[in-house]
């Protein structure tokens, strides 16, 4: 195990450095850089949503709302109050965390589709409120946001998100969340405070997607309420389900794949959304449990001896 961790650590640093030099020297064309940043932001959004939907089993459709909170609060801090970037990102995330608790406490009593529709409604409320607040530009939003998100910040925050959520899931708290997903009544009987864990997972998810929002705002120059529409929440959900509910590596792979797919479809002009929707349905129909199921992609799976041909994750019994 130790050797494996060391190996991963080295690989991560090598990857960081390689991309860093490639962007600095212009080896990666700007168009791919945009998508690289989108990938990082999407990974954070997907992994954080996976904590809520995949591990805790709470179907939330308002993820973009928290992203908006993180984006707006951080931009207010950097642009209007002149605070440093790091503080702004963390404040944005903290604000999303608080809103998460506020929204989570009443709504997480709901189950399944009811929760979905309540969180969807909440996302719409945030958007409509922002439309009416002139301080943040109303529907026009805020433009001219300084480009403070760079590759280093993006990389650090993406890794931190994955690392913290992975450790959370493997902790006592995480186990409690999983037990809520698998059988809420049984979990309650075992003395687990289900409301507490649901709200905890929900607001931690909100915290991280708040970071994603802040990074997004400080890369893309402009934020508008319309940016954080239901489609953004849906995109994150697609990545989670695509990757496999309860698989962090799955979410990462799916976030990369979906961003890549979207970038590739740009050449199809007006047909791109039709093809995207069609692919979505096809993939869901043929692989409803997602790429990874609930399994994680590990080095053991990639290179470990027993599986035939060394191919990844062959052992998915969950698929049937």
């Amino acid at each position: 195990m130790k050797r494996e961790n060391l190996l991963i650590g080295i690989l991560l640093i090598v990857f960081y450095a390689a991309v860093f030099f490639a962007t600095e020297t212009g080896l990666i064309p700007p168009y791919y850089q945009v998508n690289l940043y989108l990938m990082g932001i999407n990974i954070i959004a997907a992994v954080s949503l996976n904590l809520i939907v995949g591990f805790t089993g709470q179907l939330a459709l308002g993820h973009a709302g928290f992203m908006a909170v993180g984006a707006y609060i951080s931009v207010i801090l950097t642009m209007k109050l002149g605070q440093p970037f790091l503080l702004a990102v963390l404040a944005g995330a903290a604000a999303a965390f608080l809103v998460g608790i506020l929204i989570g406490l009443p709504t997480l009593r709901l189950k399944g589709d009811y929760l979905a529709i309540a969180t969807l409604g909440f996302g719409e409320i945030i958007r409509r409120l922002l439309d009416n607040i002139d301080y943040v530009g109303g529907a026009a939003g805020i433009n001219g946001i300084p480009k403070l998100t760079n590759w280093t910040w993006l990389y650090i925050f993406t890794l931190l998100t994955i690392f913290i959520i992975k450790n959370f899931v493997n902790s006592t708290h995480g186990r409690a969340c999983i037990s809520v997903r698998d059988n809420e009544i049984a979990a309650e009987t075992m003395g687990i405070n289900t409301t507490y864990y649901k709200v905890l997972a929900f607001s931690i998810g909100a915290f991280f997607v708040g970071i994603a929002g802040a990074l997004y705002a400080h890369y893309f120059f402009l934020i508008q309420p319309a940016t954080f529409s239901f489609m953004k929440s849906f995109d994150a959900l697609v990545m989670v389900v695509f990757g496999g509910l309860g698989s962090i590596t799955g979410s990462v792979i799916a976030a990369v794949a979906v961003t890549f797919m979207n970038a590739a479809l740009i050449n199809f002009g007006t047909l791109r959304m039709v093809i995207y929707a069609l692919l979505l349905v096809i993939i869901m129909v043929f692989r409803p449990q997602g790429l990874m199921g609930t399994k994680e992609l590990t080095f053991k799976r990639l290179f470990g001896g027993k599986e035939r041909g060394g191919s990844a994750n062959v052992n998915d019994k969950t698929s049937d």
Partner: peptide
């Protein structure tokens, strides 16, 4: 899962819209 069905439903909706 309900979730896959939900995503498919939204996928169909997007497909028909576009």
């Amino acid at each position: 899962t309900r979730l896959s069905a939900l995503i498919t439903a939204i996928g169909v909706s997007l497909f028909l819209q576009n």
